[in-house]
């Protein structure tokens, strides 16, 4: 009888344990109606650097705060949401010769694996490897990413409309435009080959 009791207790505690571990794995939605999530780009040019911003960010990332190496998901940026401060520049950038937003409406990053995880005060720092797709060309990239986990902060952000957690991702990395078929080897005297991308996005995981 004592053995049965012990077995029952052990299986119950195992169930609770696995449930609590399961509860740490959450899917974060990066669609942002507040217009805060953004990816900025910066590239050198002779008179002044060209910079701009994209706010059409969406995607789902699954993150386990107790096991950050298990992160997976996709972040997508709407190409047409790329904004520059000059209308003519923006028209050229989104036009057929450069990003061709009409034919390639999305820029995406699909996370495949995480390495070199370092714990921080409120999250993790890691190297994230995934497929970055720009203008229809997919290339594997490894980029540094900071995961900031903000438990129970969704309520504060949504003024009490929803309760849940927030996950903030930050990353800065450089790509070469020629690698993605964007005027390869051309116009290098006017626009640099290297483009710096800075990503700062927050995803929400509302309580079920």
């Amino acid at each position: 009888m004592q053995t049965v009791k012990t077995l029952l207790l052990a299986s119950a505690s195992l169930c609770i344990c696995s449930l609590s571990l399961q509860a740490e794995v959450k899917s974060y939605d990066f669609e942002d109606p507040k217009g805060v999530n953004n990816v900025s780009f910066l590239l050198d040019a002779p008179l002044e650097s060209i910079s701009g911003n994209a706010k059409g960010v969406s995607g789902i990332v699954t993150f386990d705060s107790t096991n950050p190496e298990a992160v997976s998901g996709t972040i997508t940026i709407e190409t047409a949401s790329l904004t520059a401060t000059n209308n003519k520049l923006q028209e050229h950038m989104l036009g057929k010769g450069w990003l061709d937003a009409a034919s390639y409406p999305e820029i995406s990053f699909v996370a495949k694996s995480v390495s070199k995880v370092e714990e921080l005060k409120d999250g993790f720092k890691a190297q994230l490897t995934g497929d970055f797709t720009l203008k229809g060309v997919a290339k594997e990239l490894t980029v540094p990413v900071t995961f900031t986990y903000l438990p129970r902060m969704l309520g504060k952000r949504s003024n009490g409309a929803m309760e849940g957690d927030l996950l903030v991702l930050r990353s800065t990395f450089t790509i070469n435009r020629s690698d993605y078929g964007i005027k390869p080897g051309q116009n290098s005297d006017k626009v640099a080959e290297e483009v710096e991308l800075r990503l700062a996005i927050a995803g929400a995981a509302p309580d079920a």
Binding site: E48, T85, M153, R157, V168
Partner: peptide, 25 residues
């Protein structure tokens, strides 16, 4: 402005909850 003309101006902002820096135009 020492640079090319701008049709819109970037206004830097910071989200108070996530501390994400972003721009409004």
């Amino acid at each position: 402005h020492v640079g090319f003309s701008k049709d819109r101006v970037e206004i830097p902002q910071v989200d108070p909850i996530t501390q994400i820096e972003y721009v409004d135009y």
